[in-house]
Design a binder for these strands. Structure first.
Lengths: 209, 209
DNA sequence: GTCTATAAACCGATAGAC
DNA sequence: GTCTATCGGTTTATAGAC
């Protein structure tokens, strides 16, 4: 075993490839957000990146794998956000920050839009270990905050933790943001505040403590 | 002007056509719910109804018009539900009943799934006067209940009525119902209750009056 | 109106030269 | 790896006989 044969650095070629793949995923992310998986075409992605379609297939073997890679990077981003949440906040406020971040991404057109009930793309996600792994990590971290917030009476203990978790996920792709944006009566900042509020406090008047 | 030339009754042929078109829209409704607009094909619709694809185009000129007709019939159904809500209920409880009905339809696989941000299908809806008319009727009726509930302190007066309206619409296609159903830990009835609850009361503990 | 057959366009994926 | 060119399959929509 010679130490010289061990990989020392990622080499220029590999770095270039990583950079190119990141640029591809940037385009995919935006196109997935704007048009959704079904209407996004590989020709569009290639044109948006500025390379030929055949070159695209040298980096990713299929359209589904592109979407899976995009979603995996999104989860990486989510985990980074979760890990940077100020530790002095209450668990409920931590969750609020995460919801706010997801809604912000959505309204900025950077939230991939994958149909929830679809075979080909969903199987691609389930068959993509990096995605599953990160999803479990994120679920674990959010789950801890949820249970803590429930124990401390910040979130309803009557609700199954699963419901709170899915509710948080669902808010990141809530069409209400699109409706309000189309209406044009509110700024993006207003819309974000309104969605975060209705997510946690619903539509009923707030209690006066 | 001879009275005999005036249309007396819808004639057997017209009645048959109406019946056939209703059967078509039944299939479209279910397919739109299961697969969404993009993945629903005209071949599937024709096969499901039991007629040839060319016959389908004798009734509806395009795929978009099919979806528009399906959505229009859904709004008709919604208006019928709204008009049958018991008048002795409070405005908030009336709205709750409507939300419950929408979620029930969703979880039963009878809620057409149209992408909210799509040009071709959205323009088809906007260019379909019957749809627009019914949407305005529904908005007007729900808007009255919302304002009344806000005046009486049943719903938050701090929220724009628009936000409450869109929130109610959005709950009918909330992916949380699909997530919970996939998990398999809850019955359909449980899921409906949970979604209605989180829609109106959010995730925070209920106040004890 | 209903059918069979087909046109016309689009899309995912690949071949092969460089 | 990147390109041009193209294959193979699918989809919307229509033509034309009955």
């Amino acid at each position: 075993m010679n130490a010289a044969t061990a990989p020392k650095k990622p080499s220029f070629k590999q770095q270039q490839m990583q950079f190119r793949e990141n640029a591809i995923l940037d385009s995919v992310n935006r196109l997935l957000s704007q048009k959704g998986f079904d209407l996004m075409t590989m020709d569009e992605v290639a044109a948006d990146v500025g390379i030929a379609k055949a070159s695209l297939y040298k980096h990713f073997p299929s359209k589904e794998s592109l979407a899976a890679a995009s979603m995996t990077r999104l989860l990486d981003h989510s985990l980074a956000v979760v890990n940077q949440v100020p530790s002095h906040l209450s668990s409920k406020d931590k969750l609020k920050l995460v919801v706010r971040w997801g809604i912000t991404l959505h309204i900025q057109g950077e939230m991939p839009y994958l149909p929830s009930t679809r075979s080909s793309i969903q199987q691609a996600l389930l068959g993509h270990p990096p995605y599953i792994e990160r999803l479990q990590d994120l679920t674990t971290q959010l789950g801890e905050w949820i249970l803590d917030a429930q124990e401390k009476g910040q979130l309803s203990a009557a609700l199954p933790a699963e419901v709170i978790l899915y509710s948080i996920f669902a808010r990141a792709c809530d069409p209400m943001a699109d409706f309000l944006k189309m209406g044009g009566a509110f700024t993006d900042s207003d819309i974000i505040d309104l969605l975060v509020h209705t997510c946690f406090d619903g539509l009923t008047p707030l209690r006066v403590d």
